[in-house]
Structure formats: structure tokens, C-alpha cells
Design a binder for these strands. Sequence first.
DNA 1: GTGAAAGCGCTAACAC
DNA 2: GTGTTAGCGCTTTCAC
Lengths: 330, 330
Amino acid sequence: MTIRDVAARAGVSVATVSKVINERYGVSAATLARVRAVIEELGYEASLVAQSLRNHRTNVIGILVADLEPFSTELLKGAADAIRGSGFELVVYSAGGRTGDPLGWEKRYLSRLSGTLVDGAVLVTPTVSLDVVPGTPVVAVDPHTGPSHLPTIDSDNLRGAQLATEHLLDLGHRRIAFLAGRPDLQSAELRKTGYLRALTAAGITPDEDLIRIGAYDPEVSAASAHALLTGPDRPTAVFAANDISAIATVDAARELGLAVPDDLSVVGFDNVPESALCSPPLTTVDQPIREMGHRAIRMLIALINGDEVERTHVTLDTGLVVRHSTRALP
Amino acid sequence: MTIRDVAARAGVSVATVSKVINERYGVSAATLARVRAVIEELGYEASLVAQSLRNHRTNVIGILVADLEPFSTELLKGAADAIRGSGFELVVYSAGGRTGDPLGWEKRYLSRLSGTLVDGAVLVTPTVSLDVVPGTPVVAVDPHTGPSHLPTIDSDNLRGAQLATEHLLDLGHRRIAFLAGRPDLQSAELRKTGYLRALTAAGITPDEDLIRIGAYDPEVSAASAHALLTGPDRPTAVFAANDISAIATVDAARELGLAVPDDLSVVGFDNVPESALCSPPLTTVDQPIREMGHRAIRMLIALINGDEVERTHVTLDTGLVVRHSTRALP
DNA sequence: GTGAAAGCGCTAACAC
DNA sequence: GTGTTAGCGCTTTCAC
């Protein structure tokens, strides 16, 4: 089913069919109608691939995610939302969390796709190679390896962590533990910095024993939380670097017979909406994940169209949503 | 950056470069090394589009989803998992929940992609056109419009609903309400059928007043749940056709001062893992969503490879996971 | 108003 | 072993 089949059936040349498809001038009304009818009848659709090869504009935006976990799927929803009505299509490529050549994956994919299949890409891969394919507009979301010269969307991890810690301080907590994220991710480090700064600003000397690695992993977090809660002079509050760790902390507390928030206050970061459902509903630092996806697409489209982009590094606000997992110390 | 640049720089013809890329015979060790070095140096990657146009095999599988909601993203994870190590890549196309031409979307996309960009596709769109593009292997997941002759993966909605209802009956409940899904979806109808059968088998005549539409929508469900719980002779248990409706029911109960499960038992269907987090943790009919994604990909790969496929309609088991939202009547 | 022909980047016959 | 060439499905000059 190619353009030639349509041309043959309509008794015209392929060039004419192409003109009809692309709504070009220079086709008589009669021919137009006939060709349209044949297209309809045959259910013909132009091959995206052949079109891409010819035109260098494809009206397709790629979004590359390292894996389909809650963060990226949430982001995808915002992106899908922004793409609607933009005239672009969205295709998602997932590396499937593969470990082989973690560094080069996004670059390889980008080279294979750019200039042909996609007009630009959003990168949601923790490790963003600094030297991406030239000539292809790219926007990175929360690029974890530190400041890059790529256009970037992220959220205010530092301030979010400070808000969370200050909230616990305001509730009277003084022994506040931190369940850290992955040390290789810049956003995780910023959360730690925010925690430390808030403590220091309150005149509290951070206690190394109250800082453990959760690594954004349920099992690692569970073990660390357990250690934290069974150690000497246990904390009265825990700030977890993401919601997975926070939920693991709540579970660990429950297992130890500690009630949340009566015996232990817990705050999480990185919440996808579902974390509001946990029991008790989690106080969280609210990252506007969908909005990040939305903004990334909008910025990318501007870049593709050559529009003026006011700022290429956008940091979205984070806020604290207080729910029932925290309470004032008696 | 094309194959010609590589050829020129290496001082060979494009054919030779192509042979190197595709590991064909007939290239001397010296040339091989030289070309490889140039490829490395230039960071060249063959254009997926041009390759697709030429070869009719692309090693790419498309997965078309109507929207990126929890069900489809969960399914995507299973699919991503199955794709790993299969030699195929996965690309996801989302219709973004668009309403325009809901029927033809998957067909249009498929025509544009098949034979060129993807070797086959998994359809996760409620409405599956019966006459999909011939020549392209396709597997439908939970096709909602009724039995189709397409290869299909679904889960046992009928039995799941029976299990849920029987569980409530076993707990001593007699006035069991049903919060139905969307009447246009076959799976929703099967859930209703299962509910009715279980009641009838227990010698209970279904009460029309206890059946309301939740439409898988939080607001519609909330309103229906409210009506159900404030009506005369209110039910002691509610079976909701999906987890969104179930959570809405729990919330509605809470607002009315009814405790779950003390005053009202609630069971949900369609759970994504997060629904276990709600408060109290929801008793649910467990659909193996990830496994559905996994099986769909595996079946599709077999189809693409022309392998023998034992069954083209696979219905996966559903089970009941009892959590704290249900209890025996006193 | 319409069609012939070139060429997008690549691969596979087939010469040399 | 290596290069020349045709052509995948499409769009776009440019003759007619």
C-alpha cells in the first residue's frame, strides 16, 4: 500500500497524489476529489519513514526515558498534555533500565533518530552526556550529573529540602534523620544540602549517625530506616529523599511498633500523586512533575521552531504539602 | 553525518561501510579496523529511518496506548521488561487521550508505521478496529469492544468479579452494592456479570438500587457512592469495578462518618500496586497487569518471527488480595 | 494542471 | 575485497 498504488488506482502520477496529501496548489478540483476518494477507499496513509527521509521536518518529538518508573510516567503525562494541539506527535523511547553502556545510550539513540525521525528530544535520563548530537534541539529534565549547558527543566530540590526540614523544626523536632538518595545524582545531593543548611540555620549541628543512604530503593531504605529507628537515642522525625524511602520508613516504624505520626514524623520528597494515598497520608515536598514535562515540551517546541526562548534553565518551585504523617512534638 | 561522510573519511565506498555496520563478510581486517575507527571517531550512527526504508525488518516494536494512565503505564513496565534482551526496541505512542476520531487512531498510526518503522504492535486502546492493517502482526491487550479475531491478552474479569463478590458473601454480607464501570467496555460488563452471578448463585436476588455507575471516574464514583450510602437500607459492602471507584467509595464513606471496614466493607478491581497504599489498604481483585504487558510482547515477538503460537487468546488469572478494607459482619 | 526525474540515507546484488 | 548501481516511498523542482 504505497503512494504508487493510489496513483495507479486514481489514474494520476505519484507527484499529483503527493500534492493532494500535502495540500499543495496546482491540482484541479476534479483530480483532488478523485484522489481523495481513492485514498479514502484504500485507507492509505503515507509512510512516516519515507516522509521523514525526504523532508527533514517530521513533527515528531522524542522523549527518552531511562526507565518507566513513577517519576517518568508522571512526567510523560505532562508531556502528552503539552503535545496536544501542538501539531507534534510524541514517541517515547525507554531504555528499559538497562545497565549496559548507561552513559552512551541517549546519545546513540539521539543520533539514530535525529534529523530523520524526530525534530527534537526531551531527555529524562539521569546521565546526560554533555556533548549531545549537534543540530538536534534537546531539553534535559532534571539532569542528574550536575550543571550542563543543555537547556534544562528541573525543580527546586534545595529549597524543597529546606522547607521539609524547617517544617519538622517548626514542629519542635530536633533529632531529625535524613534518608539520603543516590549519591551519584545531583538532585539527591541538593536535597541533602538543603537538609543540612536548614539544620545549621537552626543552630543544630548535623549528626552523622542520623544520615543514612536509602538510595531511592525500597529495600535499602527499609534497612536504613530500621537501623535509624533501633539505634541509640532514635530520631523523632525522618526526612526521606524520596517517597519510596518515606514509605519504607513508615513501614519500618510500623514493624517496630512505632506509630506515625505519634511516635515518629515522616516527610518524603519526590511525590507522585499516589503517595498521598499511603497510610497515614504522607507529608511531602511537592515536585510539579507533570508541569516539568509540560514545560520541557514547550521549551523544546520553541527551540525547534527557532523561537526566542527567554530562559533555557528553568527551575520550578517546590512546595510542602502537609498531611498526616507529621505532627508537633508534645 | 551520513554513511557517505564515513566512507569519504575512511577512503572507501559506502557499500564497504555498510558491510562493516552490518557485519557482512567480504571486508579485509585492515579496512574493517579503519572503518570502525572512523565510525568511532565521528560518533556515527546509522539512520534508523533510512535503514527502515530499505530493510523491511526494523527490530522495533510499537506499543500504542490511548492514554498514559496508571493501567497503561503499569502495562508498559511489563512490556519494557519483556523487551529486554529480545533484540527489539520498544517505542510507545500515546494518543494522549484525544477525543477526535477515537476509532481510527490506532489504525492510522499503524498504517503509517508498519512495514517501515515497526515490525509489529501492541494495542492498548479500548476500541480496537477489527480490520487492522494486514501484514502487520498485532496483539491487543484487553480489547474492550468485545471478542475480536485479533490475538489478545486479557485477564479473567468474570472470575475476578465472582471472587470479590463471593469474598463479601463469605464474610456474611447480603446487601452488596456494585459500582459499575463504563458500559461501553466489555471488561466492565464482565465484572458486572460476575457480580450478578455470584449473588444469584448464593440465592440472592440482585437489587437494582444497589447497582450504580461509577464510570471509572473519581467524581462520578463519588456521587454514586454517596447516593448508595445515604439511600434507604444502605449496603454493608460495596464492590467497585475499579480502584478509582473503590477509593472514591472509601472517601465518601469517611465523609459520611462511616468507618471502613467497620461500617462498610469495600473491594476494588483493577489495582495498580499503589492502591495497596490507600487507607485502609484496599482488598482488591488482582489483575496481573505487568504480566499482561509481558505476555503481549512475547506473543508479538513470536508472531513477528513466524514462530508457532500455541494460543492467540490468553486470559490471565485474577486473584483476590484481602487487605483491611473488608471484614466479616458481626 | 500534470508528470518525469532526482535524491533523502541506506542495503544488497552484482560487477570488477 | 571493493565499488557501482538500483531502489525502498516519498517530495519537489521543472518541463510540458
